[in-house]
Design a protein around this nucleic acid. Structure first.
Lengths: 327, 327
DNA sequence: AAAGCTATTGTAAACGTTTACGTTAAGTGC
DNA sequence: GCACTTAACGTAAACGTTTACAATAGCTTT
């Protein structure tokens, strides 16, 4: 059996209280001699503390649960790096729970799991909550924060890029390059997608461009969504496209190639994400670049009550997938 | 305060034992009427079980810890999907602990964390253990299994692709296409890298090709490693390269483009991984494709004692980054 | 020398469950 | 009507910690 503090107490002759105090480094409540003896015996026995028991009695854990929606794109790693970095600095552990992709059952289950483990905070990444999810979260007193999704509800904390601005800037950039028939590809019907659509539409409107419904090709941020959108755009003579993700942009590019065409001559594309994919693609993809690490860091700040930036700014990174358009 | 079974017991008039039995669905030890009443009150109070307390008394958890080394490449998602899939089927939860990249302190710490939580099993993904890590793992009686790393030690369980075969096949393929000056780029000095080097060298030898030391460009499987390797290969007039990862292959490709050259005319490349990166790249990258999902599934099987395939086979996927070479 | 303080340690309760064992009452077979 | 079984429930210990409170001894202060 695994040794416990009882074993150490028995072997040293001290009470379990003293052993516990030494092990927890409660300074000033034990002598140096006692400490040395206890630590020595602990080492001899190969003692390892039982986190479960500790957390049970302390009624708190140092664990942040990250529930992630497996969006078919690749942004999540950067965010998790940021979370990990900030959490480590705050002496918190990070556990990650996968919730499938838009899978309501798994998603709800993951929240329950996190709550049942009495984690210190819950981060919901790219998750679109339903009524039941929100009820569950608000009823528990566990702090939570949505990441990379902005629910547009003052009551509910979230950290994400400014989706409206991201799409607005991308669209304006294409307009500045002379494009007038501009698409938006790969967005979904949820919050993130809607916000990007609003930014896109606002940019069109501000520049007196009458958009068409079909210029918006819905999807799930995936590579496949990009591939599917290419042909419609060609048929509509769209010349520039804002892609909802790097994956979607890459899909558009691939579809162009399959049709013997190339970016940016066949189509100018600016992608929203700015991951390594943009560099790997040929030609490299111009992007509205999200600061994923920052989003991760801020989301942890948000959890622990520090005032965090809820809308992280994005930046334009010019690469080679956009060309000037002349009528 | 969060309601507990005591509260339910008080309100229903039953003892905590009965309440516990109902909640744990210990069939045959309570009447239907009792069950209904308990469940009703539990719902009223918003009861949620305390996993910590449960695990403490049961002395077992249904949690698999995955400790992942953040290798600067992108294979991990597929494996985690597989782990998740199999774990869910076995009613196990999955928590993921990040261990940095070749960071011995973090790595050791992560193992300790997992052990202190008395998880039911530990999966070590792309981790190279040191002496202390192995001692820790073997001394604890918690099952563990290395994933995507084969320690070449019968005693230590692991599930990975057949690295030797992967590199051997990649090399043979290039030879079959007429290449004679063949490089290996991006591997590290650890187990995975060494095994791939052996496969590569064996293929050269079996085909009576005298390799040169400089044909092997070491790295860390990263994009940058690929970029750095391009120039040396050109100078050595190497015509075909086995890339240690998709990222490395993409780096080689990018470096070629920066020099105004293209794959496969400037260099034939076959990549080991076969992720979506291979499709996104232009031209698409021929690869030795790993079955990541399968690796994930088998690693969980390995943990729970089912006899699992320890060496998962790889397959060649021909795309557009290799051309025939004629002297 | 009395009183007070401090450093060190011990006692025991508490955290929220599960479960071995005991008890009761009702049912069954004869 | 008796012995036996069984369904349903309760009692209490256990899991491995932390910590409030108490106790002791030695020291300081006056």
């Amino acid at each position: 059996m695994k040794p416990t503090i009882k074993d150490i107490a028995a072997k040293t002759g001290f009470s379990i209280a003293t052993v516990s105090r030494v092990l927890a480094e409660k300074r000033g409540s034990y002598s140096d001699k006692t400490r040395d003896r206890v630590l020595q015996v602990a080492k001899e026995l190969g003692y390892r503390k039982n986190t479960l028991a500790m957390e049970l009695v302390k009624k708190k854990t140092d664990v942040i649960a990250v529930i992630v929606n497996v969006t078919p794109t690749n942004f999540s790693n950067g965010i998790i790096d940021g979370i990990q970095e900030r959490a480590t600095a705050l002496r918190q552990q990070v556990i990650i729970l996968y919730a499938g992709n838009r899978n309501h059952v798994l998603q709800h289950q993951a929240i329950i799991t996190a709550l049942e483990r009495s984690v210190s905070g819950i981060l919901l990444m790219a998750i679109e909550p339903d009524e039941a999810d929100l009820r569950l979260l608000t009823e528990a007193k566990t702090p939570f924060c949505f990441v990379s999704v902005n629910l547009a509800d003052e009551q509910i904390k979230s950290v994400s890029s400014d989706n409206y601005q991201a799409a607005y800037q991308a669209t304006e950039y294409l307009i500045a390059q002379g494009h007038r028939r501009i698409g938006l590809a790969g967005i979904d019907q949820y919050h993130t997608g809607s916000q990007r659509r609003s930014g896109y539409q606002a940019a069109l409107k501000d520049n007196h461009i009458q958009g068409k419904a079909a210029w918006i090709q819905m999807g799930d941020y995936s590579y496949q969504a990009g591939q599917a959108a290419f042909k419609p755009y060609r048929q509509m003579a769209v010349t520039g496209v804002v892609a909802a993700s790097d994956m979607t942009a890459a899909g558009l590019q691939k579809a162009a190639q399959i049709n013997g065409l190339e970016l940016p001559t066949a189509l100018s594309v600016v992608s929203i994400d700015g991951t390594l994919i943009c560099d790997i693609a040929t030609p490299a993809l111009t992007s509205i670049t999200q600061n994923f690490t920052r989003i991760g860091i801020e989301s942890v700040n948000c959890l622990v009550g520090e005032n965090a930036t809820q809308l992280v700014p994005v930046t334009l990174t010019e690469r080679d997938s956009v060309m000037k358009h002349v009528e």
